[in-house]
């Protein structure tokens, strides 16, 4: 099935997609920012600093989502030898890393007025930092190894090592005492975030997802152009 997808055919779709994704992103992000920064109420306790959450939480979700996606693609790609999956992973990684850093930085900015400290070595924050380091290792591995077979193996191993950290990030706030508060949004039980704050949060998540998609498409197109130019390398 995957052999049927010639680079040229994929490229004819992915080269046109970015401008539509960009338009949609601008639309969603402007609605999201208006909701988050102007229309949504302030928090009863944190007042306006709650607005940092509308960037912090979506950024953290997207970075976790992208790392999980990269891991699945790399493992399946490694087992079934699908080159294309590695290229998709490679193109996804930069936006995941950027959102991870954004989550750490905005968390720090929020932590100073709320907790009284920029940084705490608690389980949630430290495990998130470890994820950023795994992203960094992943990105560097692509630059170090020239040989395709080698880079596929090394990046697969990095994702497998890193994915163990993902459930630790998710459940760190439940397993151990942490300074970071537990999750406010629960699928199985009642969420402890008011709907007037949940809606802008979800819109901002959609906006960030679209932004990741946009960056992904641009990176992926670059990879496809490289393959086309070489003429030898097939997906």
């Amino acid at each position: 099935m995957f052999q049927l997808l010639e680079p040229n055919r994929i490229f004819s779709i992915t080269s046109k997609a970015p401008k539509y994704v960009l338009l949609l992103f601008i639309l969603v992000v402007s609605i999201g920012l208006t909701e988050a920064l102007i229309l949504s109420p302030e928090d009863y306790k944190q007042s306006h600093s709650v607005r940092i959450m509308y960037v912090h939480v979506p950024a953290a979700w997207i970075s976790l989502g992208i790392f999980s996606t990269i891991t699945i693609l790399s493992i399946v790609g490694y087992i079934f030898k699908i080159k294309n999956f590695f290229l998709i992973s490679k193109s996804l990684a930069p936006s995941g890393f950027v959102f991870n850093v954004i989550a750490l930085v905005t968390g720090s900015i929020w932590g100073k007025p709320t907790w009284g400290t920029w940084w705490a070595w608690d389980a949630r924050i430290t495990s998130m930092l470890i994820l950023a380091l795994f992203y960094l290792m992943y990105l560097i591995a692509w630059r170090i190894y020239e040989d395709k077979e080698q880079v596929f193996k090394v990046t697969s191993i990095i994702t497998i090592l890193g994915i163990i950290n993902v459930p630790i990030i998710k459940y760190s706030v439940d397993w151990w005492n942490t300074l970071h508060q537990p999750a406010s949004i629960n699928i199985l039980s009642k969420s402890t975030i008011h709907s007037s704050m949940l809606v802008p949060l979800l819109i901002m998540t959609a906006a960030f997802a679209l932004f990741s998609l946009l960056i992904f498409l641009m990176k992926y197109n670059t990879e496809l152009i490289k393959i086309k130019n070489k003429g030898l390398d097939r997906l």
Partner: peptide
């Protein structure tokens, strides 16, 4: 030697509180 405030998972507008 240092005091940190811990925030809980409740987010709501003042009117709701």
């Amino acid at each position: 030697t240092k005091i940190l405030a811990k925030h809980d998972e409740n987010y709501m507008p003042p009117e709701v509180k």
